[in-house]
Structures are given as structure tokens and as C-alpha cells.
Design a protein around this nucleic acid. Structure first.
Lengths: 200, 200
DNA sequence: ACGATTAATTGAACGATGTTTAATTCTTGT
DNA sequence: ACAAGAATTAAACATCGTTCAATTAATCGT
């Protein structure tokens, strides 16, 4: 179906997303631009607009892939433990390590904002929800005495908490250095929260 | 000392900061630009560069003022309660309400990033630390059996946690609507964490 | 085989951005 | 009144997202 070049729309799309990931990873959210992505794949800006609605769309796709990546990793490492408690702690651990290993790509998920009149597409919100569900599922066996509603609430609080520690650490607003300190903080949060939530 | 106009450098500085606050509050971080600030105070861009190093500097000053604002409010409402536990919970409550009442200005504190080679000035980090100290102080009477180190750690975890819930809620990634739900979440986090941390 | 059609791709343009600087305008001291 | 000096501007530069007429190449009909 390709007319002028060797690349189909789908191929160009894939190349652009890969290039954007690399640029974002190396130069951060602000270092990402349409022209950089285009020239990285040997095309012109105009071509990008044939494949993406606009730059927001492109970034949203990249962020979607990052969320997929993160989700996959969390599920995988989840299975390394039997103990329900260990499994839940592992989720936080993986989340923080992911953020530490590629901070720019992780941060872009939260730095990027759609213009006020556009709302986040459903498929993206679902990716976020899917990850949050992972926490909820991990929490379930530890909270047999709680209602589903309470578990949902607790999962949100827990994930929000870990995320907060993570983002403050990455943006250096927590006065801590090194990944390990962040892991300790997150561990402390989950430990104490769980103790309070389950009553030992 | 003013030469050509009725405004001293200090006055221009103040006017610019006030204008930037309004613009950021109404149009968000991305809606803020040097030209907008300049024209809002009846000057040209060039004048801004006589008073600020660059736009990053200006935004940093605005964010510093926002942090001052927030700190003042937290201290004030802190004194409405006698009970140590109530006082601590109030901190989270005030934090979230502040974020809800002027989300754009609150978000800008965390959305704005200095270029990678510049590090955040000390005076700014101190404002952040000052606020975090508030949590630490509030936590102290509830943790007589803990070492200062543990209290510091707990305060970081707690504040990070509340912040995470807040930022995910503001950016609509938590699937909750209304401030009250966010307050509930934060309350749940602090409640359970404290129960675990203090042993009731 | 070749011209016509149609799609892919470009390049230039537009308005907006942060930042710098030469030129201008005003104030002040003498 | 004039020279000196400071305040302020206007224009310039490079970059940004976005659009679109023009161009180039591949396909189709004959």
C-alpha cells in the first residue's frame, strides 16, 4: 500500500513512537519536539501530522506504551513471590525502580497535560486504572475482613502514597539521595499503612 | 531612584510577580509567558529581563510565594486544634484544600523544572523543607517512642503520600471526583499509617 | 507503454515562544 | 542648557506547533 516510500503509515507510526521514546528518555519532556522526532526518522514534520493528530496525541501514545511497559514489569516481578504481603510490597518496589531507571520517560506520564478543553481519552485512563487494579488485587488477600469498597479506597491511598514519594524524590523535593532511600520510604509507608489497615 | 517611569525595580518586580500569579492561576503553567506578564503590567519583555534572570527565575519566585502562602495557611489552621492527632490530620486537610482552591498555582510548583544543568536554589529548597518540618513537628507528640530519625522518615512518607494522592486527583488519574473524596482518601492514608506507626 | 489519477511527502509559511541587544527616550547632575 | 547615564523599547534570532499549497512518486486505465 505504500506509495512513495518504503514505510507504511503503521511503520512510520512505530518509528516515530520509538524515536520519541528515545528523545524523551535522553532529553526529557521539554527536549521533545515534533521536528526532532521527524528528523530522527528521516521525515519532515508534515508527515507526523499524517499519522498523529498533533504532538499531544503522539506524547499520549508514548505515555500509553510506558504504562504498558510498567504494567508488564509489575506483573512479571509480582510472580516472584508467594506471600501476599511480599507481593504487594514488590509492586511498590518495582514502581520505584522503574521510575529510577528511566525517570524522564516515567515523569512524562505526569508532566504532560492535554489542553483544558480536551479530556483524557478513555483508552489512556484504562491503562492507568489497570495498573491501579493490580494494587487492589494484591491487597485483597490481606484484607479479608474489609469490604470491596474499603479495599478500593485503600488501594488508591496506597498507590497514591507510593507515587507521591516517588515523584517528590525524582524532582528532588524530599531531600533524599539514592534509590535505596526512596525504597525505604515507600517500604515504611506501606508497612505502617498495612499494619494499620489490617491490624497486624 | 526611578528614572523614566513611576516604578522602581522593586515595584516592577512586585507587579510582575502579581501578574504572573494571576495568569498562572487562570491559564495554568503553559498559559504563562514572558510577553503576557510584561503586557499585563504595561511594560515590554525586555524590562522583565532587567528584573529577573529569565522566565525560570520568575516562575521560581512565584512558586516560592505560593509555598509561603501555603505554609502560612497551614500554620494558621494548625492552631485551631488542641489534640495532636487532629492537628496532624488538619495539615493534610489544609494541603488538599489549598490545591483544590487554586490547582493551577499549586501544580506549577511541581510542573516547573529547571534545566538539567541548573540545580534548584537553596532558598527554594528551604521553603519546601520548612513545610515538611511542619509535618515532622506535628508528628512528634504522637511518636514519643520513636527516634528522631524514624520521625523524620515517617514525616517524609506521610507528606509524600498525601501529596501523591493530591496530585493524582488533580490530574484526574485517580478516578475520583470532588474534593471530599480526596480528603477521604488522604484521611484514610493518614489514619491507617498512624495506627500502624504508633500502634493505636 | 504511457498518460492520468491519486496518494505521499515536502517546504515554506504563520503566529507564538524565550532571550539578547542596539537604539531610543527620558532623568539627573553640572 | 547640556552631557552623562540609566530606563525602556523595538527589532532580531532561533525554536516551537501547526497548516497547506506545491511537488514528487506510484498506481491504474487504456
Amino acid at each position: 500500500m505504500s506509495r512513495r516510500s518504503d514505510h507504511s503509515r503503521e511503520e512510520i507510526r512505530e518509528m516515530a513512537l520509538a524515536a520519541a521514546e528515545t528523545i524523551a528518555s535522553e532529553q526529557g519532556y521539554t527536549g521533545l519536539s515534533a521536528r526532532k522526532v521527524a528528523s530522527a526518522i528521516g521525515y519532515t514534520v508534515g508527515t507526523l501530522y499524517l499519522v498523529f493528530d498533533n504532538l499531544d496525541d503522539l506524547i499520549l501514545q508514548v505515555n500509553g506504551r510506558t504504562l504498558d511497559h510498567l504494567h508488564t514489569q509489575m506483573v512479571k516481578e509480582q510472580n516472584q513471590h508467594q506471600d501476599a504481603r511480599e507481593r504487594l510490597l514488590q509492586l511498590g518496589h518495582t514502581y520505584i525502580r522503574f521510575a529510577d531507571e528511566d525517570p524522564h520517560r516515567w515523569e512524562m506520564i505526569f508532566e504532560h497535560h492535554l489542553p483544558e478543553d480536551h479530556e483524557t481519552p478513555k483508552w489512556f485512563l484504562e491503562k492507568v486504572a489497570r495498573m491501579f487494579l493490580l494494587v487492589e488485587t494484591g491487597l485483597e488477600p490481606l484484607a479479608k475482613r474489609h469490604s470491596p469498597q474499603e479495599i478500593t479506597q485503600a488501594a488508591r491511598a496506597l498507590w497514591g502514597g507510593v507515587h507521591g514519594i516517588c515523584i517528590l524524590a525524582v524532582t528532588r523535593k524530599l531531600d533524599v539521595v539514592g534509590v535505596d532511600s526512596v525504597q525505604d520510604l515507600s517500604q515504611s509507608l506501606m508497612d505502617n499503612y498495612l499494619r494499620g489497615f489490617t491490624g497486624h
